[in-house]
Design a protein around this nucleic acid. Sequence first.
DNA 1: TTGTATGCAAATGGTTTGCACCTAT
DNA 2: ATAGGTGCAAACCATTTGCATACAA
Lengths: 146, 146
Amino acid sequence: MPCEGDHASGRSAYGARRMTTQRRVIAQAVDETRGAFTIDELASRVRRMDRTTGTATVYRAVAHLEESGWVERVGERGGSALYARCGAEEHHHHLVCTGCGRIEPAACPLDAGLAEEAERAGFLLTDHEVTLYGLCAACQTETRRG
Amino acid sequence: MPCEGDHASGRSAYGARRMTTQRRVIAQAVDETRGAFTIDELASRVRRMDRTTGTATVYRAVAHLEESGWVERVGERGGSALYARCGAEEHHHHLVCTGCGRIEPAACPLDAGLAEEAERAGFLLTDHEVTLYGLCAACQTETRRG
DNA sequence: TTGTATGCAAATGGTTTGCACCTAT
DNA sequence: ATAGGTGCAAACCATTTGCATACAA
C-alpha cells in the first residue's frame, strides 16, 4: 500500500519535474494496470481518461517514470518495449506470466558461486538481468479448463 | 573446435535449407566475429567479403541461424538486436563484456530454492533468461591504463 | 513572467516484405 | 524443371524530435 506521497497522482514519480494533468493521468493509468504493458496499450488507457493526451507525451512520461524507478522495463513483446510497475524497492528481478502478463518481483538467484565462476573466466561482474517466465495460478487453471 | 560438418561454411547451420554463396559467406563472417554483433555490423563484414550480398539477405540468414541455434540473440545495443555465436551446446546463459562485447557462456544459477519460491507465488516456471554484465580481463586492464 | 511541457506532424532507423529475377537441387 | 533464394526498393512501425502553443510555478 503506497503512502500518499507515493500515490499514482502524486509528484514523486516524476521527481522534481512539473506536475501536469497529463502526467497525473499517465501515472494513474499505470497504477491501474496490472501486469506488463506496451506504450501503445498505456496510451489507449490514458486516452480513455483524457481524450487530448498525445502519444509522444506518454513516451516522454514513461521515460521519466523509468528514470525515477517508478516503473521498470521488463522486456518486449512484438517489437514494442514492455514496462511494469511491480512496486518492489530493493534489488530484485521479475516473474512474468506468459498467459496474462502479470508481473511479480522475484528474489535474486545470483550467489557467491556464480561470482567465483565469472572471476575464474577473468570477468569483473558489474550488472545482471534475470527474468523468469511461467504461468500464474489463474492462467494454469485457465489452461487446464481450455 | 567445430567438426567439419559444423564448420561455418557447412550446411548444418541452416538446417535442411539450400546452401548458397551468400549463406556460406554470412556464416563464415559470423564465425570470424568475436563477441556480439548487430545485423548492420555483420552486413558490413559480409559486404567486405562479397560485395553483392544485400542487407535483407543477412537479416533472413541470421533468422535461420538463430532458429537452428547456431547463433543466439543476446540482447540489444542502441535499438539494434545483438547476436552472438558462443558455441555452447547445452542449456546456458551469457557473460557479456560491456567493454568489448565479448561473450562467454555462463552456467545457469537457477536452483531448487528459486523454483520453490516461484511455486509459493503460484507460478509454474517454463523458461528463464539470465544475463551477466561485466568487464573481461583485457578490458579491466584497459580501464586501469586509461 | 518564464522556463517547461504538450500536441502535432514529420523524421528516424531497424526490420520486414513484395516482386521480378536467379540458382541450387 | 522448379521450389526456394536473392537484391532492390518500398513499406512498416515503434520511437524520437522540431516547433509553435499552452501552462505550472
